[in-house]
Design a protein around this nucleic acid. Structure first.
Length: 487
RNA sequence: GGCCCGUUCGUCUAGCGGCCUAGGACACCGCCCUCUCAAGGCGGAGGCACGGGUUCGAACCCCGUACGGGCUACCA
């Protein structure tokens, strides 16, 4: 592989960064980094109606959040700019000039209405194989003269007639053959002078020196058309690599019906960028030994030959598991840095307090990191440690505090906590002696204490929780719970 | 309709003619651990879409069929 690899990711800013697009970006990025090449970001904003600047910015933010970086792009510039298609009109115009002078393009004066009529008639008759090339027959001088005179026209490409097919050697799929008989002289430039995607995209890839086009399968059928344009322009044809798409559980293209589809949405749901990146990378690419790998490994090991051709189905469950893996593997320090903003947003602790109580948070971190799969679950799980007026879950009251013996258990825990050393080991030792003394089941004693102290039957480990809460508050809670418990 | 692509456990995949009585991961089920919930450990169930070839031998190669997907726009 040459060390001059240049790849690009060219999203349309018509919405948020879709997870499918994100994966395409990741593969391009990983490929570029693996080969020491350049990763170029280009904004395909030719759909003026739906493209917005906010979307562009959001997409850039999402890519950066995922940990991707680019060597050239709309925000940082580069030697092949501009990086927004709407700013490249002059370049498309120049390219059209090439086609005019080398005769590979020709103006077509057919009206949309007449084209539609012909198409409908042909379809009704059984087979439509595209534009019938009426205007290709117009003598060149006449055609150019009419165009210059201002007669409305589009520009079409002359699909080669001296050859039967185009074979493309897809890096992922191998050789794919397309008969040229099925290809018509498609439009490159619209009546209003704007380039179609088929033209703009090829011109950009050429002018930006793109060596490998890595993208979704949905572009495979269009690739021979692009090859025709590259050749018409006299431009080198880049290598193509088409990967399978990502679908929803029903096998249909991923859409809103399948739940969250944007990178942003997953960020907001408490997913870590490294987990999303890892999971996305795994959707269509694999490493033999492991499912979990970091950025550097992805870069070091990424190969297009290991990208699969089949479509993949988006599995939120596996993503969740992956997120849990990352959460658990994180150092306590890092975990705290990630959660403090969330705790602050929830009004549980201020950043200043967090700094002050760093030691305390360090003890808390491993307890919860192991129990949550997404950052979203954090606040509900630890809220009891921060609130002044704990509300005990109703069903917990019924299931635990209403049980016979619960009250006695709480009294006993109360007296134990009154003067035990406030370290988990001591609290545990003291409390473990209780069930036997009271003649109660351990479960009842511990659950009663848990409900009293945390307000719920589910919580971080009890002894640690008590220590984190502190003696006074624990005792207060035991007494409040005692008031609503059975004997 | 035409052209193109795809098809290994429910899901992501390993496999690139003998190492496969098909391996791993998620999910699922059971057991263990256990103060709850997790995490963890152990075990289980579960798949080469179908039919023909080629070959001493096929998940791997070829051809059909079925199913899924894509393209076929003055969309991208």
């Amino acid at each position: 592989m040459p060390d001059t690899v240049r790849v690009r990711f060219a999203p349309s800013p018509t919405g948020h960064l879709h997870i499918g697009g994100a994966r395409t970006a990741i593969y391009n990025w990983a490929f570029a980094r693996h080969h020491g090449g350049s990763f170029v970001l280009r904004i395909d904003d030719t759909d003026k109606e739906r493209s917005t600047e906010e979307n562009t910015e959001q997409i850039l933010r999402s890519l950066a959040w995922l940990g991707l970086d680019w060597d050239e792009g709309p925000d940082i510039g580069g030697d092949h700019g501009p990086y927004r298609q709407t700013e490249r009109s002059a370049i498309y115009a120049e390219s059209l000039e090439i086609l005019k002078s080398n005769g590979q393009g020709y103006p077509c004066f057919c009206t949309q209405e007449s084209l539609e009529r012909k198409r409908d008639a042909a379809r009704a008759a059984g087979g439509y194989s595209g534009y019938d090339r009426t205007c290709r027959a117009i003598p060149r001088e006449e055609a150019l003269a009419r165009a210059t005179a201002g007669e409305p026209h589009v520009w079409r490409v002359k699909v080669p007639t001296d050859r039967d097919d185009i074979t493309l050697d897809d890096v992922i799929r191998g050789p794919v053959n397309f008969p040229l008989s099925a290809m018509d002289d498609f439009i490159l430039v619209r009546t209003d002078g704007s380039p179609t995607y088929m033209f703009a995209s090829v011109v950009d890839d050429w002018k930006m020196g793109i060596t490998h086009i890595i993208r979704g399968d949905d572009h495979l059928s269009n690739t021979p058309r692009q090859v025709v344009v590259f050749e018409a322009l006299g431009a080198p044809v880049p290598a193509f690599a088409h990967m399978g798409l990502i679908f929803g559980a029903d096998g249909k293209r991923l859409s809103k019906r399948h739940g969250a589809t944007s990178v942003e949405a997953y960020r907001d749901m408490g997913y870590l960028p490294e987990a999303l990146l890892n999971y996305l990378a795994l959707l269509g690419w694999s490493l033999e030994e492991t499912n979990v790998f970091d950025r550097d490994t992805l870069i070091a090991e990424f190969e297009l030959s290991r990208v699969s051709k089949n479509p993949a189905i988006w599995d939120p469950g596996k993503l969740e598991w992956m997120n849990g893996v990352y959460l658990r593997d994180m150092s306590a320090e890092e975990f705290i840095d990630r959660i403090v903003p969330l705790l602050a947003d929830a009004g549980l602790i201020s950043p200043a307090e967090a700094t002050e109580r760093r030691e305390w948070l360090l003890e808390l971190a491993p307890l919860v990191a192991e129990r949550i799969k997404t950052l979203d679950e954090l606040v509900p799980m630890v809220a009891f440690l921060f609130t002044e007026d704990l509300v005990i879950d109703e069903s917990a009251k019924e299931k635990v505090l209403a049980k016979e013996g619960a009250g006695r258990a709480l009294d006993a825990v109360d007296s134990v906590l009154a003067d035990v050393d406030m370290v988990p080991e001591a609290v545990e030792t003291a409390m473990r002696a209780l069930p036997e003394q009271l003649g109660l089941k351990p479960k009842l004693v511990f659950q009663a204490a848990r409900v009293a102290v945390t307000g719920s039957t589910v919580s971080p480990p009890l002894f640690e929780s008590i220590v984190l809460l502190g003696r006074e508050r624990s005792l207060d809670r035991l007494r409040l719970a005692r008031a609503v418990s059975a004997d």
